[in-house]
Each structure stands twice: as C-alpha cells, then as structure tokens.
Design a protein around this nucleic acid. Structure first.
Lengths: 230, 230
DNA sequence: GAAGAAATATTGGTATACCAGATACCCAAT
DNA sequence: ATTGGGTATCTGGTATACCAATATTTCTTC
C-alpha cells in the first residue's frame, strides 16, 4: 500500500480556542502596558474584558487563571483581578533564576550545539560588533534579548527554554532599561563577545561562568539602581 | 483616641475556594499514583471527577487548567484529559534545570545564610552520617529530598524556590528510585557532606560546582539507566 | 457476513444564570 | 459636619445548559 507521503497537507488551521485567543490578547495587553510607569494598581474586570473581546466570561476566566499561574495577575475573591507589579526584590530573584538557567544552557550548548549554530550567535549583532552601541540602543535592545534566547535554545533543553521564556516576559522591560544606564551597553557587548569565544572553544566551565557573571552583574545593577521599580 | 492595639484579632481563615480544593485533590491523586508502572495512558473524565468531588465541572476545569499549566495533564479538545507521562528526555531536562537552580541557590546561600541555618543541613541526616544508608533507604529517601529543599530555601530566592518545587513534584519519584540503584546512596551521602563543608566554608564557587555536579550526576544516571521510564 | 452509512452517546468548549461576599452610596441621627 | 447603618450594586465563584466535534453503536444494503 502506498502511503500518502506526496500529500503535503496544509497543517490544518486549528484556529485556537477562544481561551487561547483571550490569553494571548490579555498577555499582549499586559506586557505592552508600562506597569511601572503608573503609581496605582491596574484592575481588570472580567465582564468588561469578555465584552471587549466579544466572548463570554468562561474563556476569559480560564485565560486569567493561566496568567495568574504565570505570575502576571493576582485574583482576589470578590475584589477583582489585578495586574501584578513585581517588587525589585522579586525582579532580582528572577534575574538570578534566569542566570542559573542560562548558564546551564551555555554549558549544555558547549557539548550539544554544532559549530554552525554557535556561529549564528555572532550574526545576531553584526553592526554593533565593532561599532558604538549607545547610538543604536533600540536595535541593540532587541539583539541583546535575542542573543540570550539563542544561547538558551542552543542548550537544547526544553524545560530550561520554557522556564526561561516565562521569566523573560517579566524582565524584558527591565533588561532594556538597564542597558541605557551608564556604560552598560558597551560592557554588555564586551561580555557577549567573551561568551561567544568560550562557547566556540567548547570551554564549558568558562562559558557557564561568564554567562552566570553576566547575569549576576545585571542583577546587582538592578539591585543598586532599580529603585524606580517601587 | 485610643487605637485598639490590645485587640490581637485572629487572622481570619479565608477557607480556600472549591477550585483550590479540587486542585489539591487532583494533584495529590496524580502524584500518588505510579504513572510509570502502568503501560496505558490514564484518562480523566471531567464529569466523573466533578461527581466524585461533589462539585460542578467549573472548579474542576479550573483546577485542570492549572495542572495543565504545570505539566501534569494534557487536555485534547473533545478527546479527553490525560495524565502526562514524562519521557526520559524530559525528565533528564528537568534534572538539568533543577541542578541549575539548586547550584545558584547554593551560591546565594553562601553569602546569605547564617551559620545556624547552614548547621541545620547536618541535622537532616544524623543517623546516616556515618552509618550504612543502604539499610535505611526509605528514611534516607525523605532525608535526601529534604536536604536539597533546604539548600534551595537557604538561597532565599523565592523565584528559585517556586520553580524548584514544581520540578521536584515531577522528579521526586525518580530521585528516590535512582537512590536504590548501584552504590548511589553511598555516593550521594559522600557528596552531600562535601557540599555542606563547602557551604560552611562560604566557598561559593565550590559549593555551586559541587551541587551542580551532584545534580548532573543524577541526570547522567537517569539518562543511562532510566529506560524503565519509557 | 462484510462494508458502509446513519443514528446515538460522549467529550471538552462555551455561554449564561445565580449566589454570596464586598463595596459604595445615600440618608437620617447627632 | 460627622457618624452610623442600611440598601443598592458590583465582583468573582459556582452551577448548569447547550453546542460542535468525535467516537461508538446500530442499522441498512449488497
């Protein structure tokens, strides 16, 4: 019997469930808004949200449950759902956890990633490699995030990737803000180059240490200068 | 006017919601059952669960949503809710993530924990310290888990504690199983002692490395001998 | 008796109704 | 003007009804 291998079936749209759509809409709204800019807590109204999204409360509530689980909102019975403002201490803690996971990913990448994959790290920030990053902060912010995400993906450990991506959503804004303070962008780039070299040389201990110190440096910076968070 | 400071009011109970109760009941049932003993996948029926628990489907569904988020169950539209059997690869990944987080916690503990707190680590397994652990495997299994949890808590980083406790629920069974294989119990104890010494000497680099290697050793063991998982 | 089609049962997804606690507001009493 | 209480209203929590897609059974047809 002939298998229907020649049929490359379209992947099926499988348009997500309303719950997923609501989740994505809400998460986008939350991460987009500048929580730390405003002094008051933001309250979410289930009924208003379901009206605005054009669905019933059920999928909205399920989406909110997931967001609560991920630490984006907090639900108080008969009081309301509130967008969580992380404290400085919590953010520093998240950066510590991030550093732990990313440094392990770097170690794993040393033994698992191909040369070609490691090379892709250099291509992430070609124009800044020798240039003046402080003049291209916006572009570099994205490249910076992508650099770290790439290292984590090269570790090829799904659990670490999942945990990290969750942490990233919480600290993305902070990372980019810190980059604009002092000479951190230049420092960051120098450290990135050292990390790439260690990875390419397959020096797992060194790569792990450099990634960890890079992360801990950010944590210390936020700890010292992150008072705007509270 | 006199403030009523002398009234020490009881803190108000705030009994949990049905959703929380359902969540705890389900999680207990899932972690208790030996998923890897049986060959077939376990399917959960929302309606049956709500009947058994004596509540409606709504809180049960919300509990299942959380469990899905935590990786305990997988919900397929119009097919059913299934208890997830982790693959060997996933379990090894979780141990890697665990090792990353615990080693960072050990590092943090070196600078944050008091001498008294560190001393409590020794008290976790007094009778096994010089004895033959293979004769007390059951007690040692618990002590082993508690040892690692204690290190993580001494790191005093809430994020790391939360992430780790989630991972622990998934790998608890595996940790204890591995302890019974070969000479792992004896090896484990020797390594624990080294870790304690490093922590007490406040040698953060060393403590971090020992904890990491201890974890990676378990990962390698499971990778090699964990075929019963699939 | 086998194959296929139609009816039926079961499942998770969604919408809606109702409840009890918490809040906000109004108004009378002082 | 302030206080106290009572009521209307709003909120999240829960129960239930319904839907569409799937799996299963039954029935028809050859």
């Amino acid at each position: 019997m002939v298998k229907s291998d020649q049929f490359s079936i379209t992947p099926i749209v499988a348009s997500s469930s309303l719950r997923t759509l609501a989740y994505e809409a809400l998460k986008a709204a939350i991460t987009k808004m500048d929580i730390y800019g405003r002094p008051d807590e933001v309250r979410l109204d289930e009924r208003k949200l379901s009206q605005d999204l054009g669905v019933s409360r059920t999928p909205v509530r399920e989406a909110l449950t997931v967001l609560e689980q991920e630490g984006f909102v907090r639900s108080e019975a008969r009081r309301g759902v509130f967008v969580i403002k992380k404290t400085k201490k919590e953010i520093v803690g998240m950066i510590h956890a991030w550093a732990a996971l990313e440094s392990m990913a770097a170690r794993l990448a040393c033994e698992r990633a191909t040369d070609a994959q490691l090379k892709s790290l250099r291509e992430i920030f070609p124009e800044f490699y020798e240039g003046k990053p402080s003049e291209h902060i916006d572009e570099y912010s994205d490249a910076n995030i992508r650099f770290h995400q790439t290292i984590i993906s090269l570790g090829q450990c799904e659990v670490i990737q999942d945990l990290s991506s969750n942490l990233l959503m919480h600290v993305r804004g902070i990372r980019n803000t810190a980059l604009r303070q002092g000479e951190r962008a230049e420092k960051s780039i120098r450290e990135h180059v050292q990390i790439i070299k260690a990875l390419e040389a397959r020096r797992d201990d060194l790569a792990e240490r450099l990634v960890r110190e890079h992360g801990l440096g950010l944590a210390a910076h936020v700890h010292q200068y992150g008072d705007y968070l509270e």
